[in-house]
Design a protein around this nucleic acid. Structure first.
Lengths: 341, 341
DNA sequence: CTGTTAGCGCATTCAT
DNA sequence: ATGAATGCGCTAACAG
C-alpha cells in the first residue's frame, strides 16, 4: 500500500484515460456519459483515490468553500457569550447546509491578510476590536457583510437599536421615576465606571450609542432628564463587570427605581444582586434587558427585554453572503414583556 | 489603481529582481541581507503587495495553518453547550497564540474529505455523531488527536471518568440511600427514558459508560444495588430533555434521595425542578453533577460536581497537536463540594 | 465525448 | 547573495 497520496495524474495514467476525464468525472458530470463516469468513480474508489486535491482546487478555482466569521473579540470571549454563540449557530446552520466551512476569526487578530487569499468571503459580526481588520476587509475584494455595525460600502444586517431601546424604555418608565442606564462599551475605559463627561467612543456606528439615544429619547419624552453620572459604562458583556456595576447602582443614593440595561447578562446580574439585597423587583426596582437570551426567560422573575433573533440574524447573514445580496437589512425585534416591570 | 491582485512575479518584475528574492524577503530572512530585505519590503508596501498568495502557499508548502476541530455534534449544538464552548475557548487561545486558524467542523457532516487536503491537523472533540468521520481521520495522514474518546492509534486526552464518577458518588451516597442515575447517551434512543434492558451503545470508549461504571462501583461498595429502571438515558445534554428526566425521577415512587447526574446541565435542571416542587436539597434529595460549568457555581444551592478543566483540556489538545506529541494524557479532575449534598 | 495544453502563484533546488 | 527552472495538483479552454 502506497502511503503517497494518489494524484489525478496517477489515476489517469492507471486508468488509461486523460486527466481531464477524471477531473470531469468528479466535477462536471455533464461532460461525460453517466456510465463512463460511474465506471471511473468505481475504479477510483477501488484504488483509493478520494477525489481531486482540495488545496490544488483552491488555487486553481479560487474558491475554498470556507467562510470566515470575523468576531468582534477573541474567539475565547465570543463562544461563551450567549448572544454571539446563538448568532454563530445561525451562521453555521446555513453554511453546513450549503456545504461551506466555517473559519472563526478573532477580532483582536493582527490582520486578515493570512486568510484573505483562500477564504470565499467574510461575515463581520460586530466592530472588530482591532479596527485595522475592518479597514482590511474594505480593501480586499472578496464578498463581505457586516452585522450589528457598518463598514463603508458593505451590505449590513442590523436591528433598529435606537427604536428598540426607545420602545422598551418607554414602556418601563413612569413619569416620576429615577432612571439609571447600564451601558456597554460607551467610553474608552477597561473598567466599569460612570461615564460622567468622558468622551463617547466610536459614536457613529456603535449599537450601544444608538441604544443610548433611544433610552434618552424615551426618558426625555416622559419629562425626565438623566445626568451622565447615572449612566454606567461596562467594558464588555461579562458577568463580573456587570456585577460591579450592579453593586454601584444599587448602593448609590438616591437609588434608581428603573434601570435600563444594554444586555441581558447585565440585567440578570443586576436582578440577582437586587434580589440578594432584598430589593423587590419590580416594586422597588424595574429592570429592562436587551437581546433576549434563553437564560433571561428561565429566571424568576423573568426579564423584560428586547428580543432580537440572533440565530435568524446569523442565518440571514450567511444567506446574504452566499447569495451576494447587496442591500442592507433591518431585522425586526420584539419587546418581550417579562416580570421585571 | 489596479484591481487585479499583484503577484510575486509582477513585483519581481517591477523591482527588477528575481521572484526568489521577493519570496525570500517574505519567508526566509536569512537568505538575504537585512538591508536588501527591508528595502524590498518597503517597496512592496508602497506598491500594495501584501505578501505571497496564501492559496498558492498552501499548495506549494502543503501547510495552511488551519486546524480543524471536529466536534461531536453540529456546530449549532456545540457552541451553546457550556462544556464544549469552554473547550473551544482553550483550543482557540493556543491556536491564536501560535498563529493558527480554527476551522469548526460538524460531527454530523458527511465526510472530512473536503478539508483533509488543506488542513494541518485535526482535533476530535468527542466521538463524532457520524462514525464515518472517525474512520476517515484514521485513514488520513495529517496529525490528529482525540479528546474524551479514543481512536485506534491516535493520541488522546481524557480524564479518568470512571474514577471521577466513583469518587463523587462515593462521597454522596450513604448506606441506606435510594439512588438514581441520570445518564447521557447510554442507549440508542432519541428520547429520554429509563434504560431497562436496552442494549448499551458504543460501550467501549464512551465516557458515559465509564461514568456509569464508576457510579455503579460506588453504589455496590455501599452494599446497595441499582436496577436498570433507576437509570435514565438522556439523548443529549440539553435542558428540555433533562427537565423531562428530572420530572420522571422526582415523580417516581419511591422517590430516590440521591441522584447522580452525568452533566451539570442535567443536575441543574433536576435541582430547579426539585426546588419548585418544594423538595429540600440536600435534606430530601442529594444531587451530584459532572463537568464543573460556571453556572453550577452560581446557583443556590450550588452544585457538588466533578470539575474537569475544559479550557485546559482545550489548550492541551491544541498544544499536543501542534507539538505532535504522541502519548495519551490523563488529565486530573477535582471533586468540587457544593451544597447539593 | 475525450485528450492536450497552459497556467493558477508560489517555493525550492541548483547553478552562478 | 541571487536568478532560472521545475513542479505542487489541478481545471478550463480548446482542439479533435
Amino acid at each position: 500500500m502506497n502511503k503517497n497520496k494518489l494524484t489525478l495524474k496517477d489515476v489517469a495514467l492507471q486508468l488509461g484515460v486523460s486527466t481531464a476525464t477524471i477531473s470531469n468525472a468528479f466535477n462536471r458530470p455533464d461532460q461525460l456519459s453517466a456510465a463512463r463516469r460511474e465506471a471511473i468513480l468505481a475504479e477510483c474508489e477501488k484504488i483509493g483515490y478520494t477525489g481531486p486535491n482540495k488545496a490544488a482546487q483552491i488555487l486553481r478555482k479560487g474558491r475554498s468553500n470556507i467562510v470566515a466569521l470575523i468576531l468582534a473579540d477573541s474567539i475565547a470571549y465570543t463562544v461563551s457569550d450567549p448572544v454571539a454563540s446563538t448568532f454563530i449557530k445561525g451562521v453555521s446552520r446555513v453554511l453546513q447546509q450549503q456545504g461551506k466551512h466555517l473559519l472563526l476569526y478573532a477580532g483582536d487578530s493582527e490582520s486578515i491578510l493570512d486568510v484573505v487569499d483562500f477564504v470565499d468571503g467574510f461575515i463581520c459580526y460586530g466592530a472588530p476590536r482591532n479596527p485595522k481588520l475592518a479597514e482590511e476587509v474594505v480593501r480586499q475584494t472578496k464578498p463581505a457583510i457586516t452585522v450589528d455595525f457598518n463598514i463603508d460600502g458593505l451590505p449590513s444586517i442590523n436591528i433598529d437599536n435606537e427604536k428598540a431601546a426607545y420602545e422598551v424604555a418607554s414602556q418601563a418608565i413612569a413619569n416620576d421615576d429615577h432612571v439609571a442606564i447600564l451601558g456597554l462599551r460607551l467610553i474608552d475605559s477597561p473598567s466599569t465606571c460612570r461615564i460622567y463627561d468622558s468622551p463617547l467612543i466610536e459614536v457613529e456606528s456603535s449599537i450601544s450609542h444608538r441604544r443610548l439615544d433611544g433610552y434618552i429619547r424615551a426618558i426625555e419624552e416622559k419629562g425626565l432628564i438623566i445626568e451622565n453620572d447615572w449612566i454606567w459604562h461596562i467594558p464588555e458583556s461579562d458577568r463580573s463587570f456587570a456585577k460591579q456595576a450592579a453593586k454601584e447602582v444599587l448602593h448609590s443614593s438616591p437609588r434608581p427605581n428603573t434601570v435600563l440595561c444594554m444586555s441581558d447578562i447585565i440585567a440578570l446580574e443586576l436582578l440577582q444582586s437586587a434580589l440578594s439585597l432584598g430589593i423587590k423587583v419590580p416594586e422597588e426596582l424595574k429592570i429592562t434587558g436587551f437581546d433576549g437570551i434563553e437564560e433571561a426567560e428561565r429566571t424568576r422573575p423573568n426579564l423584560t427585554t428586547v428580543c432580537q433573533a440572533s440565530d435568524k440574524k446569523g442565518e440571514m447573514a450567511a444567506t446574504a453572503l452566499l447569495e451576494s445580496r447587496d442591500k442592507d437589512e433591518i431585522l425586526p425585534f420584539e419587546i418581550k414583556r417579562g416580570e421585571t416591570f
